[in-house]
Design a binder for these strands. Sequence first.
DNA 1: CTGTCAATC
DNA 2: GATTGACAG
Length: 263
Amino acid sequence: MKNRKTIYAIIALLFACILYIYDNYDVEEKNISFSSNFNYLPTSTTGQIIHHNYYSLSYNEKFEQAEWVAYELTLEHLSNQNFKRPYFEKDSKVKTQSANYKNYKNSGYNKGHLCPAGDRKFSKEAFNETFLTSNITPQLYEFNAGIWNRLEQKVRYWVQKYDKLYVITGGVLSKNLKTIGSEKVAVPTQFYKIILDYHQPKIKAIAFLIPHKASEKGLYNFVVTIDEIENLTGIDFFPELPDEIESKLEKSSNYTNWNFRNF
DNA sequence: CTGTCAATC
DNA sequence: GATTGACAG
């Protein structure tokens, strides 16, 4: 009788353990794959993170531009509406004052959007919000209208396939960059873009690092690891992902899960 | 799409 | 400075 009770107790205990493990496994899966309020924002090296209605950024006063701009892009955001381009304004939320657009005048560089206007065409308000000087960086025309534009279009193409993406973009702000204008807006020599597809069961990411010059090369030639961009910028991307997933994601430069079509 | 510039009020 | 339209990759 004693033995039987012991065996029952052990069985009950095992059952409880299995339930416990199963339950936790389930919870973890849910947190990783289905949480709707996943915080995708990178860390800030400057402590000046600004949230607009339709994108966020971390402003770096020394370089007079954002070190990153981050936003969510969904299928519903894509639109064929056309809005008139407004003038660029200073970002009133930047305490240290974002650069005046006149710095770009006759500089030889264009005002390149970090959060593209084309990704915020679902409303006039969202579209206009991208025309803040905290959201631009000096770019060569041939670069901006060329390979960089191709990358932005590729992101819009991927959204149609993958439904919802997190996009993080910036110039690499390193020492001794050339500057333009009286406020000395720095001209990055490379730009990066990181895209996260936060879908179950396979979270995937891809990162691009593109030299600031015209190029006719295929975009896949510029795929790098997120770790490489972190090393260059000192920014920690996706710090809120579970460490195991983050580390695996960020050391990979495998892009076979991303459809490049003809590129 | 990505942008600039000139003309006009 | 605001608006409109032409232009270029």
